[in-house]
Structures are given as structure tokens and as C-alpha cells.
Nucleic acid binder design. Structure first.
Length: 619
RNA sequence: GGGGGCGUAGCUCAAUUGGUUAGAGCAUCGGAUUGUCGAUCCGAAGGUUGCGGGUUCGAUCCCCGUCGCCCUCGCCA
């Protein structure tokens, strides 16, 4: 090939904007990826393919930063390669090019230590401009953050950014490892239907009209729960799926209408088997993807311990500020709010905020206000030490607390001078809720959360059931969760106290997965439905296929689902699961790139026997 | 459904107490430039201040409505 021709391209005619590159044949074939070249490649002839990230035209020498998925490398055009040089001078951001040249060591003064390829550059001999780009709405290399709605509209530009490429790459490595791990442990990857039966329990469903059955609908699955149990009855023993799930509820930074779970189910196992397997999976993920060695087994808390110590069932164990029940000490005070709460059968709970005795009255008022919004009647506070002498207590209620009880409170909470005690006197549940929330808020405010911690904890022994405001019992996990064997008798007498063979895995205060051992006996399942107020007819209508399956030889089985998006988000320390999904939706469920959801043709509705009551919103 | 924040040039932002011709950096276009890497230098172009209404002599600024995005409570495993 003639090095002087610089390829087959005619001049680009950039200024005239007659910019078609149609009909120009591509003759070069890629040999290497931009970001992978190293000093060891010096001397090699390579062909690179990628996008122009920036160009620096010095009149003579021209530099082009060429980017592909692997990274960026600097390409140099010298005037001696005249044709290539002439084309290079007309390059613009995000043009797509193929470049042939020699990998060359940079001179000592020309090294750029900021990029991995900064010790070498490619001296171009030939360039083919595959496709010219119009000036994009934003540049993938732009240092300032771009509005998220713009990023979502031009997602293909956004995904060119290294952070996004990194996220999708890591996500791929995570799912690949999950599949490999499952394969090693005897799991079969089995797909389950997306067009599914509507079972209006739990989350609101997306409905899909059936053309062949006018007036009837499929639902998109909230999860493959019932199918995976059915697969166990089928004797497939171990099932795994990277499963898409759909829930039509309001969105958050960590919630999308469609999201992904690692869903798995195993036969002839108990709780320990599932916990051990998932612990090993997580240990391996952190080791092989993040190069972090996790200490296993992970700590384990019963649901009740988690609530008593942290006020929530997904405790962030990276910091202290634990709740303490100080009811016994509070009973020995003359404090009216304490006495009233205790008399009403409630309790007094406290947290000790280290070094927070210096909070201003205004800050304390704000805490009190948020406590009220969370349902408390108020928030009592005590400053230890502070303005007065060491060992003293300050605050509006301090004078009602005898010295001996003050000492007892210090002992119970582990607080000392300079700390702040916050107390809620109310029902136990409100105390949990309020102090659990304040605990997180204070930890952030007081900077008590250590970075770079990976605090996993298993939460076990959840209550099976929960009594709703109206007095009705509902399943806390789902109605197929088996009670602990020793708690089976409680179902008849005190059902709220029965604990379940359920487990959640929590990382840094975020629930990343949950599962249970399922009921595999029809009689137990029938009792559970009865407790939940689901009549046999209703149960048969909604879950008949599973009840049938339980009659024909169901093995004991159980499983878990891990939220893949949240898991990857935490691994990458991103603030939103949208940043670890290729094509996420906005808070109102819109896809700004494709403009879904959109109105449809009347003909389509007619075919589906659907009438629309309210029209779509007008922009 | 409720609460809060944001919306100004293609992008990121500024604009004094409501005041005269709405500015800057990047991107774009033209020119210069042989070692840059957020290149540099000279020049140019670029605005329905999300949209609609109101108050005012005068609105980017104040008020009402509306649309969009984000955070959050409710909701949701």
C-alpha cells in the first residue's frame, strides 16, 4: 500500500457541508483496541477504529485522541503523510475513523501520565473517515456533568462516556460470574414467561391486552416466583435466571419499572444452604470483580435484633448510634412524657450521638420536627457535659432525671461528656421508625459513615405476618413462605408471633436481596391462605396451578432473589441504578430516547377491544 | 396523591433590590499555528430566559397555572 496516499478518501469538504461519506469503501481492518496499547507494542503496525474524542491542529503536526470501548490513545499526523494529514485536519468530534499507523514511544517530555496509553502514540500513515458526525448535543468527554434528561435522550452518546462503559462492563462481569457460579453448583438457567397471569397481590402490575381473548389480559411478572417454585416441583432441582421483573409503582433513585434480579431456587435445602451459597457467591463477586476480600460468614441478626438495635430491618452496620431500650431507667424519672408512654404500654428508646452535644437549638428543633413528621409526638434530648460542669446533663427534661438514673442512662447508652442523647417515648414501633431514621440522618450529618466499607449482614427470623391498620393479616414476604417449624403451633394461637424461614441480605443499609424456604405441603399452604383471609376459591383462582403442583409431589425448596441493579450500583458506588442500566426510564416511567410510552393507533386499540377513557397528556 | 428543588445560547453556568443592548467558558464557523493532550492565539455567529396567563411604566427576577427532569413521603421486596 502506498503510504503517501493516506487512504482512498476524497477531501471531506467539511465547510461546504456536502458531507456525505456514502460510497467510500472501507479497506482497513481493525487489529487492536485503542486503550490496550502499551510500550510493549512499540514498533507494531496497527489499525485502530474509533471515535474522535478531540483534535489538536498545530498547523504542522496534528494530534487526534481516538476512543473506543477500551479507552483512548493519541494518534499523531505528520505533514509527511500528506493525504492522511490533510484529512486529519478536517476531523471533528465524534467522527468515526479507521487509522493505520505504527505504535511509537513518546519522548520523555511528551509522556502523558494521566492516561494508561500515555507512554506511546500511534503515528498515522493512513486514515479512513467512515462516518462524519454532526456536532453532538454534548460531548462524551465533557468534564462538566450534563443534565440527566439530556443524557437519557441521547443515551448512545452518554454510553460513550468511560464511566458508563465501565458500569456496563462491570455489570457484564457480574452476570457472567453469576452464571458461571450457578453452573458450577448445578443450576440450570431456565427462562420463564413474560406474559403471565395477573395476580393482584403486592405491587401494581403492568397489563398486556390479549387480542385472541378480548377483554382478558396478561400481566408482566413482578418476579418469576411461582414459576420457579413450579420448576422445583418439576424436579429440575436447581434453577437460576437473570430475570427481568416489572412493577408499576412510583419510581426512586433505586427503583425502575423494569429491573433485573438474579433469581434462584433450590430443592432439598434449608435456610443455611441458601445463605451459605449466596454468601460464597457474593464473596467471589467482590474478590474477582472488585478485588476485595470479604470476611465470611457475614454477621447475622434476627429481625427483632435488627429492629431493637437499628430501628430498621435493613440496618447500616457501618457505624454505631445504636438504639437502646431505656424503659426501666425512664420509669424511675419524673418525666411526664416517659411515664405516659410507659403507662400506655410503650417504651422509651434512646440513641447517643457522639460529639453532638454542641448542636444548636435550631438544629435540635429541626431534628424534633423530623421526628414529628415520622410519627413521634416529640423528641427529648439531653446534652452530656456541655455548658455546665463535667458529668452533668443539660436539656429541658434533665431536671426530672435523678442523678443515679442519669448515671444509668450513660451506662446503658455508652455515652459520655460531649455526646447528645435523643429519646423517643412512644410505642415500640414508632420508636424504631423515628430513631432508625434519625440514626441515618445523624450519621450523615456527623460524618460517621466510613467510606470503603462493605458491611454485609443477613437478617433472619422475620415475622411471617404483619397486621395491617385495619386488623387484617398480610404476608410480610409472600404467602408461600414457610414458618419456622417450632413456630407452626403459633399460627393457630398467636399468628403475629410466628417467624418465617425468610432471610434478607443487606449491604451498607441497602437491601440487596431476600428469599425464603417455601411451603411445600398443601395443608400448610391452605392454613396460610386461611390466616390471610384468602378463601379457598380465591386461592384456587389466583394460585391454583401452584396448589395443584403441591399435591403431586413437591420437594422442600427455597431460594432467593438478588437485586442486580442495586448490587452493581453499590459495587460502583453510584447514586442511582439508572447509572448502571443501559436504557433506564425517568421518574415518570418515560424512555426519553424512544419516547415510550406513546399513544397508539385507534386501529390497534380496536383490535384489542380496548376503549381509552382519558386521552394522553398534551405537552 | 403529598412535600421540596431545578428549567436562561447546542452544553455547563452567570445576570446586583424588578431597570437600559441578557454575559462567560466549552462546542460551532472562519483564520493562524510542527509536540499538544481541558492545546493556544485572532475573529465571527449563536437567545420565544420551558410554555401560557397575571401584576408593573418596566419581569430572567414577583404571583397563578401548566409541562418536563431530579430528590423525597405515601406506595413498592
Amino acid at each position: 500500500m502506498d503510504l503517501e496516499t493516506g487512504g482512498v478518501n476524497a477531501p471531506l469538504g467539511r465547510a461546504g457541508n456536502g458531507r456525505s461519506t456514502k460510497g467510500i469503501p472501507v479497506t482497513l481492518k481493525r487489529t487492536d483496541h485503542c486503550g490496550c496499547l502499551r510500550p510493549g507494542d512499540v514498533g507494531r503496525q496497527v489499525v485502530l477504529a474509533g471515535w474522535v474524542q478531540s483534535y489538536r491542529d498545530h498547523g504542522g503536526v496534528v494530534f487526534v485522541d481516538l476512543r473506543d470501548r477500551s479507552g483512548v490513545v493519541q494518534v499523531v499526523f505528520h505533514p509527511e503523510a500528506a493525504a492522511a494529514h490533510a484529512l486529519a485536519r478536517q476531523l471533528r468530534n465524534e467522527d468515526v475513523v479507521l487509522i493505520r499507523g505504527a505504535v511509537t514511544a513518546r519522548g520523555p517530555k511528551a509522556v502523558n501520565p494521566k492516561i494508561p496509553t500515555g507512554w506511546i502514540e500511534v503515528v498515522a500513515e493512513q486514515i479512513e473517515v467512515v462516518n462524519q458526525a454532526e456536532p453532538p448535543p454534548f460531548l462524551p468527554s465533557q468534564p462538566e456533568a450534563v443534565n440527566e434528561d439530556l443524557r437519557l435522550k441521547y443515551r448512545y452518546l452518554d454510553l460513550r462516556r468511560p464511566e458508563m462503559t465501565e458500569a456496563l462492563t462491570l455489570r457484564h462481569r457480574v452476570t457472567k460470574l453469576m452464571r458461571d457460579f450457578g453452573d458450577e453448583h448445578g443450576f440450570l438457567e431456565i427462562e420463564t414467561p413474560m406474559l403471565y397471569k395477573s395476580t393482584p397481590e403486592g405491587a401494581r402490575e403492568f397489563l398486556v391486552p390479549s387480542r385472541l381473548h378480548p377483554g382478558a389480559f396478561y400481566a408482566l411478572p413482578q418476579s418469576p416466583q411461582l414459576f420457579k417454585q413450579t420448576l422445583m416441583v418439576a424436579g429440575l432441582d436447581r434453577y437460576l435466571q437473570i430475570a427481568r421483573c416489572f412493577r408499576d409503582e412510583d419510581l426512586r433513585a433505586d427503583r425502575q419499572p423494569e429491573f433485573t434480579q438474579l433469581d434462584l431456587e433450590m430443592s432439598f435445602v434449608d435456610r443455611e444452604d441458601v445463605i451459605n451459597l449466596v454468601t460464597e457467591l457474593l464473596r467471589r463477586l467482590w474478590k474477582q470483580v472488585l478485588d476485595v476480600e470479604l470476611a465470611t460468614p457475614f454477621p447475622r441478626l434476627s429481625w427483632r435484633q435488627a429492629m431493637d438495635r437499628f430501628g430498621v430491618d435493613r440496618p447500616d452496620t457501618r457505624f454505631g448510634l445504636e438504639l437502646r431500650d431505656v424503659s426501666a431507667a425512664a420509669a424511675q424519672t419524673d418525666c411526664a412524657v416517659f411515664q405516659q408512654a410507659l403507662a400506655a404500654g410503650g417504651c422509651v428508646q434512646m440513641i447517643a450521638a457522639p460529639g453532638a452535644a454542641g448542636l444548636t437549638r435550631r438544629q435540635l428543633d429541626q431534628l424534633t420536627e423530623s421526628a414529628r413528621q415520622l410519627g413521634a409526638k416529640g423528641l427529648a434530648w439531653l446534652k452530656l457535659g456541655g455548658e455546665s460542669e463535667a458529668g452533668a446533663m443539660g436539656g429541658p427534661i434533665a431536671k426530672f432525671i435523678p442523678a443515679a438514673v442519669q448515671q444509668e442512662l450513660r451506662r446503658l447508652t455508652g455515652a459520655s461528656d460531649g455526646d447528645l442523647l435523643l429519646a423517643v417515648a412512644d410505642t415500640r414501633e414508632i420508636g424504631w421508625r423515628v430513631l432508625g431514621e434519625l440514626r441515618s440522618t445523624l450519621a450523615r450529618q456527623l460524618n460517621l459513615i466510613p467510606p470503603d466499607r462493605h458491611d454485609f449482614v443477613w437478617i433472619v427470623d422475620f415475622p411471617c405476618l404483619e397486621r395491617q391498620a385495619g386488623g387484617r393479616l398480610v404476608a410480610r414476604h409472600h404467602p408461600f413462605t414457610a414458618p419456622l417449624d417450632e413456630d407452626l403451633p403459633l399460627l393457630a394461637s398467636r399468628p403475629e408471633e410466628a417467624r418465617a424461614k425468610a432471610y434478607d441480605i443487606v449491604l451498607n443499609g441497602v437491601e440487596i436481596g431476600g428469599g425464603s424456604i417455601r411451603i411445600h405441603q398443601r395443608q400448610v399452604q391452605a392454613r396460610m391462605f386461611a390466616l390471610l383471609g384468602i378463601s379457598p376459591e380465591e386461592a384456587q383462582r389466583k394460585f391454583g396451578f401452584l396448589l395443584d403442583a403441591l399435591r403431586f409431589g413437591a420437594p422442600p425448596h427455597g431460594g432467593i432473589a438478588l437485586g442486580l441493579d442495586r448490587l452493581v450500583m453499590l459495587m460502583l458506588k453510584r447514586q442511582s441504578i439508572r447509572d448502571v442500566m443501559a436504557f433506564p426510564k425517568t421518574q415518570s416511567g418515560a424512555d426519553l430516547m424512544t419516547e415510550a410510552p406513546s399513544p397508539v393507533e385507534p386501529r390497534q386499540l380496536q383490535e384489542l377491544a380496548i376503549g381509552v377513557i382519558a386521552g394522553p397528556k398534551r405537552g
